Simulated assay, not measured.
Amino acid sequence: MMNKITQLFNIQYPVIQAGMIWASGYKLASAVSNAGGLGIIGAGSMYPDVLREHIRKCKKATDKPFAVNVPMLYPNIEVIITIIVEEGVKIVFTSAGNPKTWTAFLKEKGITVVHVVSSVKFALKAQDAGVDAVVAEGFEAGGHNGREETTTFTLIPMVKEKLTVPLIAAGGIATGRGMLAAMVLGADGVQIGSRFLASVESSSHEKFKQMVVELQDGDTHLTLKELAPVRLIKNKFFHDVVALYATSPTPDALKALLGRARAKKGMFEGDLEEGELEIGQIAGLINDIKPAGDILRDIIADFEIAKREALELL
């Protein structure tokens, strides 16, 4: 399946596994890459020495391309970038920050750079910064999200109209049919998070994975916009947030409730009541936990079936 994205990353399928905190270590990244997609190590939940270890283990687990995702709002960013360069990582996805900060530096080192955005405005800023591709992520996505609340189906064609670099769609995509829909709207590839979180190789806690499988539509909500918008499962912590909002809290009060390491407590340690549980709206369509390679092959098979069915409509 040759197109701009497969050529840019030298991969078989235009499917990228999102760099998710507490989910996407080297096991998941290498499994997706070995199956023909682009696996991503999520640096957001890793101390620098842990990131270096995962990069080295990923190199041993696959001879295919893989990437590292770097949320630029996290501390130790300079150290993380240094490790990426020292370890010879060839592809970097940046997010949650100004793409001008690191794009030129990384490209000077021969690294392909992709930036994640949630609006046309920031897609253009990323393109002007010199990125090689843009991920446009809709409101449906899990984890930290954009403030605009623009859905994927409206965001992708609006970004496509303005952009000249390759475009990757994200947010609410977990099947081949969703992949086809995104590409019909103008995307050159797709980035998928929630579906790969519910995989054998995901480093998230098994109790969290099982909870994802059991979710229905309406079980997630975007909140904490005063800090950094995040889509959460409606557990006890979420309802504590809702109760606090009823008091018209200050950002400091929200920060105090959030505390430290709450996402780790929920997603990695399995505290389903007090943890911050991040997942996308598409979780209502995820019904099982299976190997990442099987997930990718299912997506591609579904894509081919949907493509044939779409041709019958013409």
Rank of each mutant, 00 (worst) to 15 (best):
S202T: 11
S203V: 12
G275Q: 06
A310T: 13
A246F: 00
K207H: 10
G171Q: 02
D219M: 13
G193Q: 05
K60I: 13
A228D: 08
K162C: 13
H239P: 08
N98V: 12
F122V: 01
L285M: 15
E148K: 12
E86T: 05
G259D: 05
D252H: 09
V85A: 10
D132F: 06
L8D: 06
I192F: 10
H221G: 01
P48M: 03
G270S: 12
G42R: 00
I192W: 05
D294F: 07
Q281S: 10
F139N: 12
P251K: 06
I295M: 11
A141G: 14
V131C: 04
M20Q: 08
G186T: 09
Q281V: 08
P48C: 03
K27P: 06
R231G: 08
L106G: 07
D271R: 10
L254Q: 05
P14Y: 06
L224F: 08
G19T: 08
T62P: 05
A263K: 03
K90T: 13
H239I: 10
F237S: 03
N34W: 09
G97P: 02
P157D: 05
Q281W: 08
P229E: 03
A253S: 14
L257F: 06
L254D: 01
V200N: 13
E304W: 04
I286A: 09
Q7G: 14
G280F: 05
G186C: 10
K4A: 15
Q210H: 12
L313N: 11
A67G: 12
E304P: 05
V117D: 01
A182E: 00
V242S: 09
G142V: 13
S248L: 10
V212Y: 04
I289A: 09
D128L: 12
G25V: 11
E86G: 00
K107S: 13
K265S: 07
T150G: 01
I5S: 02
T94E: 03
L28T: 07
F9D: 06
T101P: 04
L254A: 09
P249V: 11
H239N: 15
I40Y: 01
D302L: 02
L232D: 02
V165K: 07
A123G: 07
H115V: 13
G280N: 06
V85Q: 07
L180I: 10
V159P: 00
N145D: 04
R297I: 09
G138Y: 01
A253C: 09
P99E: 01
G189W: 01
N287V: 11
L155Y: 00
L28D: 00
A187H: 09
E161T: 04
F208V: 11
F66S: 02
E201W: 07
R177D: 06
I111C: 07
A61E: 15
G142M: 12
I192K: 03
A61K: 12
P157K: 05
V89P: 02
V159S: 00
L163N: 04
E269S: 12
I21K: 01
I173G: 03
